[in-house]
């Protein structure tokens, strides 16, 4: 049984109806997508700004109600948008650790909320649990009586992770958890996450725009473009051996020591307009391999090689 199963999950944000005339079709932030995450797996989600990765994440934790589709966590469906219902099974670690902590609450109050609200624990039990969690994320207990502004980014992110752990979830959604951190601290947090996963048998959904980071931490990777899955594959092979031209573009764009600088694409600077989406493949306007069929028909996600799926009419040779 997969830890997380998503079936045709989609989100359309309605647009304001004009005074006269019919309401325009909404903005499709996430087009129907299906995927599974196995227990103990880390699934990386990459894509550029506006590709729908944050909308997807917010739906998965119940902060946003899906327009269509269903979310199953360990076999039981969760289609309501009640964060408290989701909270016990799936938790969220935010991108900006400082703004995810209430500036006027002590760390102890922050940590106690999930224990009290989700698990109804009594005071002595809570204190014991907080000590356990703090020990596992390498934070000192004297931090508990301080306020968020007294912490550095790395420490604040550890507190964010500790809060997510306090809910004792099965799955943690990590939304750009290290983007706001300095590189030397980034590695500390990534290693901590890997360690916690093993220790508590967690399942991760790791959302980021940093290809090198996602490759270093994930088992499998999903590549999103314009609200749709364009490719799914194993972390070690997807960027080395991409089937979708967009994945290749991403991999070629990432700056790597020793690789000469060249612009991977010269034309097509404009991304597709969400208010006026192209009828066919959203990437066709930027794609060097695009033909007529790409501009009219949306490609389906098809099996291509071992453990790799891509949504492309003219996939790259492996």
């Amino acid at each position: 049984m997969p830890a997380l199963k998503v079936d045709d999950l989609a989100k359309t944000f309605p647009l304001k109806k004009p005074l006269f005339g019919p309401a325009p079709p909404g903005v499709r932030a996430v087009r129907p997508m299906s995927f599974e995450v196995a227990t103990g797996e880390t699934l990386g989600v990459v894509g550029e700004s506006g590709c729908g990765k944050s909308t997807l994440a917010r739906m998965l934790v119940g902060l946003l109600e899906p327009s269509e589709g269903r979310i199953e966590i360990e076999g039981s469906a969760l289609d309501t948008a009640d964060p408290a219902e989701f909270g016990k099974l799936i938790q969220y670690v935010f991108q900006d650790p400082q703004s995810s902590l209430n500036p006027r609450k002590t760390i102890r109050q922050v940590m106690e909320a999930p224990l009290k609200q989700l698990h109804g624990m009594q005071r002595p039990q809570r204190d014991r649990r907080i000590s356990e969690i703090f020990a596992s994320v390498n934070l000192r207990e004297e931090f508990l009586n301080r306020y968020p502004h007294e912490f550095s980014g790395g420490q604040a992110q550890r507190i964010g992770i500790a809060r997510a752990l306090a809910a004792d979830p099965r799955i943690i959604i990590l939304d750009e958890p290290v983007s706001a951190l300095d590189v030397s601290v980034q590695a500390q947090v990534l290693n901590l996450l890997a360690d916690l996963k093993l220790r508590f048998g967690l399942t991760y959904l790791f959302i980021t725009h940093d290809l090198a980071v996602v490759e270093a931490v994930s088992d499998r990777i999903i590549v999103l473009y314009f609200g749709a899955v364009v490719e799914i594959g194993r972390a070690e092979s997807i960027f080395a051996n991409p089937r979708h031209p967009y994945t290749k573009l991403l991999a070629d764009s990432a700056p790597v020591v020793g690789k000469p600088l060249k612009a991977p694409e010269q034309k097509g600077l404009e991304l597709p307009d969400p208010l006026n989406p192209p009828p066919g493949c959203a990437f066709a306007g930027r794609c060097p391999r695009a033909t007529e069929i790409c501009r009219t028909n949306v490609p389906d996600l098809n099996e291509m090689g071992e453990d790799q799926l891509a949504a492309c009419h003219h996939p790259l040779e492996s």
Binding site: G87, F94, S99, S100, A113, P114
Partner: peptide
């Protein structure tokens, strides 16, 4: 985000 976090904490 801390409001979202509070909702996820079951408040």
């Amino acid at each position: 985000e801390f409001i979202d976090a509070a909702r996820l904490a079951g408040m």
